[in-house]
Amino acid sequence: MSNDEITRVALKYINGRDDGASWYNLEIALSRKGYGGDCNTVTLLHELMSKGLIYICGGGRTEAPLYKISEFGKKFLRD
C-alpha cells in the first residue's frame, strides 16, 4: 500500500465530512476500507497538515480536534 494511496483515501474521507473529522473517525474509516494497521492515523494527520492538505477547524475536544480539507488538499484530489 502506497503512502499516496492512503493519503488520497484519508483526504476523500475528510472532504466528505462537513463538520470535520477527528483522528478517531478517520481511523475507523480507514479500517473499514481495509487500511487498518497500515499507518499511524495521528502521524498521517500531522503529515497532511504539514503539507498544507488539511487544517484544524474549531470544535472537537482538545485531545481529538476536528480536521478539514484545505483548498490545496481539494486540488491535490483533483490532480
Rank of each mutant, 00 (worst) to 15 (best):
residue 24 Y to S: 12
residue 39 C to Y: 09
residue 20 G to Y: 03
residue 56 I to D: 02
residue 14 I to Q: 10
residue 49 M to T: 07
residue 52 G to T: 07
residue 47 E to N: 14
residue 14 I to R: 10
residue 75 K to Y: 02
residue 32 R to P: 00
residue 55 Y to G: 02
residue 76 F to S: 02
residue 17 R to L: 14
residue 67 Y to T: 05
residue 34 G to V: 10
residue 57 C to P: 00
residue 23 W to Y: 09
residue 24 Y to H: 09
residue 76 F to A: 12
residue 64 A to S: 12
residue 26 L to D: 09
residue 50 S to E: 13
residue 51 K to G: 00
residue 24 Y to N: 11
residue 59 G to F: 03
residue 21 A to E: 07
residue 38 D to L: 13
residue 11 L to C: 05
residue 56 I to Q: 15
residue 57 C to K: 12
residue 53 L to C: 04
residue 61 R to Q: 05
residue 40 N to C: 09
residue 42 V to L: 02
residue 33 K to L: 13
residue 19 D to T: 14
residue 54 I to T: 11
residue 62 T to I: 08
residue 73 G to N: 07
residue 37 G to D: 03
residue 53 L to A: 10
residue 16 G to L: 08
residue 18 D to Y: 06
residue 53 L to Q: 07
residue 43 T to V: 12
residue 20 G to A: 09
residue 22 S to C: 10
residue 21 A to S: 14
residue 22 S to F: 12
residue 22 S to G: 14
residue 28 I to G: 07
residue 25 N to L: 11
residue 69 I to V: 14
residue 29 A to M: 06
residue 33 K to V: 04
residue 27 E to D: 15
residue 33 K to G: 00
residue 67 Y to K: 06
residue 43 T to W: 12
residue 55 Y to L: 01
residue 71 E to L: 11
residue 62 T to L: 04
residue 40 N to L: 11
residue 75 K to W: 00
residue 46 H to W: 12
residue 32 R to K: 15
residue 76 F to G: 00
residue 17 R to D: 10
residue 61 R to C: 00
residue 56 I to C: 01
residue 33 K to P: 00
residue 41 T to D: 01
residue 32 R to C: 00
residue 55 Y to M: 03
residue 26 L to C: 07
residue 43 T to A: 14
residue 74 K to M: 13
residue 74 K to C: 07
residue 11 L to V: 02
residue 56 I to N: 12
residue 62 T to S: 08
residue 76 F to C: 01
residue 32 R to E: 15
residue 18 D to A: 07
residue 51 K to H: 04
residue 77 L to F: 05
residue 60 G to F: 08
residue 46 H to R: 15
residue 56 I to L: 11
residue 18 D to Q: 11
residue 45 L to K: 06
residue 72 F to G: 00
residue 30 L to E: 04
residue 35 Y to R: 01
residue 50 S to T: 07
residue 20 G to C: 12
residue 73 G to F: 10
residue 63 E to N: 10
residue 19 D to A: 15
residue 24 Y to W: 13
